[in-house]
Design a protein around this nucleic acid. Structure first.
Length: 849
RNA sequence: GCGGGCGUGGCGGAAUCGGUAGACGCUGCGGACUUAAAAUCCGUUUCCCGAUUGGGAGUGGGGGUUCGAGUCCCCCCGCCCGCACCA
């Protein structure tokens, strides 16, 4: 009996699949199914998180193929981005060379795992053939008014000389340089995602197969609120500021207003900066503006401008106007009126500056005459008080009434506000998709001619100075104006890498097309039926992709049906591992890799020195904590199937899975056992009894049903358990040898999505025809699992005491008689009669005494 | 603070139209095979008392509905994740 040798077997079958092109697909008569996993950034090393993500996708893809679908399952590379520039600076390598070398390495790693990708469709976002098409779409989006330039305040890193995304600012400092981030006004390119705010929000309800959590996160991110936007008349304000426009979701509380407040970035606040005190205050506000943690602790602070506004319903009622540090310019109008009694922030502010607190909403259980607000604003329901014509109304009616009167006076109107802001896509970086426009002195900003695309990144660039090397690359910079032909200057900003990943799913449907997409191919393959990836992309990537699908549809690059790119989304959990640390000389933790540590009897020591190692918490595998297991090592040691089996076992796919050496070993042992069973059966003879045969058939069909259900419900751990059970059943079975071989072939088919190499080997050994990859999924026959008798548990007062076997056809009366005749029941009853007898046929018997 | 999720043996987890709690796997323990080990196979593994037969407790805690609750309802406790001065 031979041992299963994964090292020889796996490459053999991988070569066979490649040779036969079994994963290469084109449109045909079968129903299509598009399975996509979030493509990786080519850092150079595949990690366990990738293995898990792609194993999950592979299960779905292989299963759907077996079920008769025409499955598109592509893979590519999200290959633009900062790490390549860092590598260029540190190692003096060209970003392109570094990136493509990484891709070659990772492609090799992926191929070793045997994923069912159609490699003919592979591309990298840094391929000019890809980003050139992206540039073409950018131009179309400019024409459609979806891409535009505007002045905006951005996070500017003065050391790296680039814009940083909000996520790249940590405690007010650049994540890489550590420099204090500045707020800088720059002219930037934007995508008009805000035009789709309402639609993106509404369509979330249709995303039935997305996790509820992600749908909520997107809803919150879009952040719709409805309210009243209106203008106050100002007094003693500088010229041009005769009115102050504010937004509120609580127009009902207008009679409780005691101040107005504006952002330090509000034009009015800026115009007052001729006053040195105000200038200093504004700058103080701005300095804490970027750090969210600072915001939490920051005290409510204001500066009384001396300006007042007149209450819209009372010409003599003047409210002071403050510049306040808690007002954001980016939301609403950057100005509010404060009603301290019913808003906590306003209340904190009012208490600090001794402003009036007038309650205008009275809870139903309070007396209007003596209802007061202490340190906690009242935000609950109630009736209006102290509000003239609103008194006695419900809040909602009061909101409507105020809105109606303000609108009638022409001072404002009801509006809807969104938190979602337009997507700033300009990056002052080299390794990204060049924005295909030209700056001409005469013609202004002109899009490049499409026949000149792609605008290629120059390769002869140097990173010896900070900033964007494109800015000092003359042959890139100097160009002809596409409109007038005069000498002009090329845009040097590149696109945010999130743009690259916002449409790659569409490109996969026709990766070599001369246009961004091919109408026929997109029509056949879109939408993605199952998208799988990490929850960390719940907002940005997924929202941008949803926007892009709409933008592409508007510019004619996607069919209307593909307006939502991903029909179903699954977010998988992380791969975690214990952490190991020794104490350094300075008392700090020195992290150790699992390779460096030996664990015996629950205690860990350093292999090299025998030094004691502290076992730390189980957390996501990360380079910084060194708690990583390299998939390549596992493949070398055990084979790809073992890695796949492990990451699919035990934990449900949406939860974290802890990688352990013991678990990997156990996975390997199981696969060995399956192979051993197969080889024992290879030339086994013998017949079994009818009962033995029926039992094995039952086990087979239970497994078919359970494995299928597990896959379809994304609880692959249950499918794995079902496969274990079938293995046990075959091992114990005394059925006919032919039937056992048949069971083994069924198991090969059921295993194929999980451990395809072993499945092929078993299939081959058991005389299966052709490849098991692509073979039809076994059909579940319910009649094989039925039994003509059933075991019913007997409870006494709800506690299980015994069980009886009864014919399935037994009537309630017959079951009752059998139950009462049961020895255990008789003993407990001790001659007494039961109070009640519950019989649920096929389920349970409960004797109540 | 707001929103969401979760709490089941030593561990990962099964069991949700209310119906045998702990499938399956890991670990541990015992045994077989072996000169020995590895590998493999068999048994056992929720806890407590008896210690064979049996009895009791048990799904974070407390209460409720029900013949019957991990599952439904109410009140607590704890953990995790996301968002966070959004007017």
């Amino acid at each position: 009996m031979s041992r299963y040798n994964a090292k020889e077997t796996e490459p053999k079958w991988q070569a066979k699949w490649a040779e036969m092109g079994v994963f290469e697909v084109k449109p045909d008569d079968r129903p299509k199914h598009y399975v996509l996993e979030m493509f990786p950034y080519p850092s150079g090393n595949l990690h366990m998180g990738h293995v898990r993500n792609y194993s999950l996708g592979d299960v779905v893809a292989r299963y759907m193929t077996a079920k008769g679908k025409n499955v598109l399952h592509p893979m590519g590379w999200d290959s633009f981005g900062l790490p390549a520039e860092n590598a260029a600076m540190e190692k003096k390598i060209n970003p392109k060379d570094w990136t493509y070398a990484n891709i070659a390495r990772m492609r090799d790693q992926l191929k070793k795992i045997g994923f069912s990708y159609d490699w003919t469709r592979e591309f990298a976002t840094c391929d000019p053939e890809y980003y050139g098409q992206q540039q073409a779409m950018f131009i179309d989006m400019m024409e459609a008014g979806l891409a535009y330039r505007k002045n905006a305040v951005v996070n500017w890193d003065p050391v790296d000389m680039t814009v940083l995304a909000n996520e790249q600012v940590e405690n007010g400092r650049g994540w890489r340089s550590g420099a204090l981030v500045e707020r800088k006004e720059l002219t930037q390119w934007f995508f008009k995602i805000s035009e789709y705010s309402q639609e993106l929000l509404d369509a979330i309800d249709g995303l039935k197969d997305w996790p509820e959590k992600v749908r909520l996160m997107q809803k919150n991110w879009i952040g719709k609120s409805t309210g009243l936007q209106f203008k106050f008349k100002t007094n003693d304000a500088p010229e041009g500021f005769e009115e102050l426009e504010v937004f509120t979701t609580r127009p009902d509380t207008l009679f409780g207003a005691s101040f107005a407040a504006i952002s330090c970035d509000h034009p009015l606040a800026k115009s007052l900066e001729t006053n040195a005190e105000i200038k200093a205050f504004n700058e103080e506000c701005r300095s804490i503006g970027t750090s969210e943690e600072a915001l939490e602790k920051a005290e409510k602070k204001g500066f009384d401008t001396g300006i007042t506004v007149t209450h819209p319903f009372h010409p003599d009622w003047k409210l002071p106007v403050y510049i306040a540090n808690f007002i954001l310019m980016g939301y609403g109008t950057g100005a509010i009126f404060g009603c301290p009694a019913h808003d906590q922030r306003d209340l904190d502010f009012a208490r600090k500056y001794y402003l009036i607190v007038t309650p205008v909403v009275c809870p139903e259980d309070q007396n209007a005459d003596d209802f007061t607000v202490g340190d906690e604003a009242y935000v609950g329901p109630g009736r209006m008080i102290n509000s003239r014509f609103l008194d006695g109304m419900e809040i909602e009616d009061a909101k409507a009434e105020v809105t109606k009167r303000i609108a009638a006076d022409g001072m404002g109107e009801g509006v809807t506000q969104y938190r979602l802001r337009d997507w700033g896509v300009s990056r002052q970086r080299y390794w990204g998709c060049p924005i295909p426009v030209v700056h001409c002195e005469k013609c202004g900003v002109v899009p490049e001619k499409k026949e000149n695309l792609p605008i290629r990144l120059p390769e002869d660039v140097s990173f010896d100075k900070p900033g964007n090397p494109l800015d000092r690359h003359n042959s890139f910079l100097v160009c002809d104006c596409p409109k007038c032909g005069a000498e002009a200057r090329r845009e040097t900003d590149t696109m945010d890498t999130f743009v690259d990943s916002s449409w790659y799913y569409a490109r996969f449907t026709a990766p070599h097309a001369e246009t961004p997409t091919d109408a026929e191919a997109a029509d056949y393959w879109m939408n993605v039926d199952q998208y799988i990836g990490g929850v960390e992309h719940a907002i940005l990537h997924l929202l941008y992709s949803r926007f892009f699908a709409r933008a592409m549809q508007k510019t004619g690059h996607l069919p209307k049906k593909a307006i939502e790119p991903f029909n179903a989304l699954f977010t998988q959990g992380m791969v975690t591992h214990e952490t190991y640390a020794t104490k350094g000389t300075d008392g700090r933790n020195v992290w150790r890799t699992p390779d460096e540590v030996r664990i015996a009897d629950g205690a860990a020591t350093l292999i090299e020195t025998g030094e004691a190692v502290e076992i730390g918490p189980v957390i996501k595998m990360s380079k910084s904590k060194k708690n990583v297991v390299d998939p390549e090592d596992i493949i070398d040691q055990y084979g790809a199937d073992t890695a796949r089996w492990f990451v699919l076992s035990d934990s449900p796919p949406d939860r974290d899975v802890e990688w352990t050496a013991a678990g990997a070993d156990a996975a390997w042992k199981h696969l060995q056992r399956v192979w051993r069973l197969a080889s024992e059966l290879f030339d086994a003879g013998g017949t079994g009894t009818d009962d033995d045969n029926a039992d094995l058939e039952r086990a087979m069909h239970i497994a078919i049903d359970d494995v299928s259900k597990g896959i379809e419900s994304f609880t692959f751990n249950k499918s794995v358990a079902a496969l274990y059970q079938l293995t046990n059943a075959i091992a114990k079975s005394d059925a006919d040898a032919d039937l056992r071989r048949e069971a083994m072939r069924v198991m090969a088919k059921l295993m194929q999505p999980f451990v395809p190499h072993l499945a092929e080997e078993v299939w081959d050994a058991m005389g299966g025809e052709g490849l098991v990859t692509g073979a039809d999924w076994p059909v579940f026959d319910p009649s094989k699992v039925e039994d003509d008798s059933v075991i019913l548990p007997i409870q006494v007062n709800g506690k299980r005491k015994d069980e009886i076997k009864v014919a399935k056809s037994a009537t309630k009366d017959e079951i009752e008689k059998l139950a009462l005749a049961n020895a255990t029941v008789q003993r407990i009853l001790d001659g007494a009669a039961p109070k009640k007898l519950i019989v649920v046929p096929g389920r349970i018997i409960n004797v109540v005494i």
